[in-house]
Nucleic acid binder design. Sequence first.
DNA 1: AGCACGCCGACT
DNA 2: GTCGGCGTGCTC
Length: 726
Amino acid sequence: MVQTLADVLVPLPLDTLFSYRVPDGMTLVPGQPVRVPFGPREAIGVVWDLREGAGANLKTLAGPIDAPILPERLRALLDFVAHWTLAPRGAVLPMALKLADGSRAETPRVGVRATGALPKRMTPARERVLAIAADGAARAKRELALAAGVSAGVVDGLVDEGALETLALLAPQSPAPDPDHAPAALSADQRVAADALAAAVRETASGVPVPILLEGVTGSGKTEAYFEAIAQALRMGGQSLVLMPEIALTAGFLDRFAERFGVRPAAWHSGVGGKRRERLYADIASGAAKVVVGARSALFLPYADLKLVVVDEEHDAGYKQEDGVHYHARDMAVIRGRLEPAAVVLASATPSLETRVNAERGRYAHIRLPERFGGRTLPDIATIDMRASGPPQGRWIAPPLAAAIEAATARGEQALLFLNRRGFAPLTLCRACGHRYECPNCTAWLVEHRFRRALVCHHCGHVERTPDHCPSCGGVDTIVPCGPGVERIAQEVATLFPEKRTITLSSDFPGGAERLRTELDAIASGACDIVIGTQLVAKGHNFPLLSVVGVVDADLGLTSGDPRAAERTFQLLQQVTGRAGRGDRPGRAYLQTFQPAHPVIAALVSGDAERFYAEETAQREAARLPPFGRLAALVVTGADKDATHAHARTLVRAAHAMGVLDADLSVLGPAEAPIAMIRGRHRVRILVRAARTRDLQGFLRDWLAAGPKPTGGIRVQVDVDPQSFL
DNA sequence: AGCACGCCGACT
DNA sequence: GTCGGCGTGCTC
């Protein structure tokens, strides 16, 4: 017998669709979330395909779930992401299914509204209630009673007599952003950019607009420019999505948005939970939520009519998802734009090399906003050669830098000391026997956190109390810290400038994001003289009084095995040094370095970013690294440390022998590959240049099927950077 | 991912 | 003699 069959994708790490018989009389459409019998239990899934066929030995689908249908365009995106990241489709599906906990049925709030009828007997209390309800709007029962100064019983009585009617109260719908609320006065350059972005949004009506790189330094008005693209999308009745790398740092953005559009946009991130998440999900699917600001996960929601995706700070590494399904939200945003179609705007002051190259090759349009209004005074950047003018042994702030800090603070200005390293000292050892404090889980050193009186592994999070005697030789008080962390710099600052007000900011900052924000506000208003911080202070907040920036160790990060190390360091230091001097006040930045001739350092000093990028691009091309070659990360996880490392080594050797890895292969091989402890499992991450991704996928499948599995639970994941394929 | 089935150690 | 460890395998 021929009947309707549904091929259903279940949100489990499986690649196969499961076929079910559709009961007679049940109409389903592709994208419909459904319940299906699955082994001994019931699972939820999404109809991927419907077809006619004989379903004699198939189970019968239980029925649809009352949840938004995943649009065809979104299903296409999910298929693409799965294919791209070599992840099973079922592993990608949950990213689009944020059904909160579907088990907990939503209890609709009961609202009441005037019917126009009058009660048989009028009382003063009833009059007050009806006076308020006279506008015909629906209100929550409690709210109405409260407003009228009566008990809920009066309202109930009016309902019984037909003067009020009950209805399921919809959530108080916040008004839609108004594109004409308060249009900003744009400079001529901003106007040109805004018009081009709006034109791209308009173009979605007839085709696929080219993605746009919007480049402009902080304060050049990128945000105002892309606000006009959002306004255009609003005028067309469509939705916009603004992706941000760290949603925690976006409160300022939400306010600016509200100034321009009258209301705050909807924010989607992991912190939004429960009912609010459910409602927002539904509003996104219905098209009621017009503008969504979100972290990378917001990209996979079932937008009804998405016209614009803005990826703010597109160079930010936070767009890379390194957990579960490995994807880069910036690249997937470009794909989503192509599928919707929607305009895609990649905004940054320091675009990534990949995006630069894509713009140069004409795959992206490139709009530059010239430097800030009123002439931005770029900070004057100088190096301090630590070999010649370094501080005495055991100190980290060179005399010229100390002098600059002294002078700035004496003028009532602020100084920032930047060191991208948490804790007191990166390496701790025993003076008597040389014992190194190492993490019991990883091959990483323990970092002393003097403030917390603890040794912390920055790799896996292992924490232990700082011991008072050496566990190896038993020596008492023999601990020697080696090298600086921000806490140690803070100590040195306290001795150098005892009368100055200082603060140390890192992700260890006690009190969480809330307190950090208030602290940053206080700093901006001058509550402190010297700020010591990690990369946390590199972005986000403006410090108008800051005139001197000192980079304690500009060489840090240049030597890591990451092929993007130079680019990352350049961008980070450009951001940090750029914080010196606001408006017309010139700032000064000092780079403490042992290698002043290093291309990254030289480029920062000369300010010739273009040349740096050109050289970096040429080098990457020669080395066939992204965006010119394919980089993959093999992630091997297992229960046992040594076995996992050994496994990673054989894996890379085998892949090399099979020719699925490129020539001299392993960029960061298993010998140096860091091992980390993640959720109770050891994890080795190896960067490799992949030959053909397809082959790598096939190889891994075969290898896992046939290869030895010495310890249980070893898994291999592949993370392909897709920029080079676009 | 769950949740079965399936063989080897310490307990009422 | 059982309860229970997690290794392996399946889910239309």
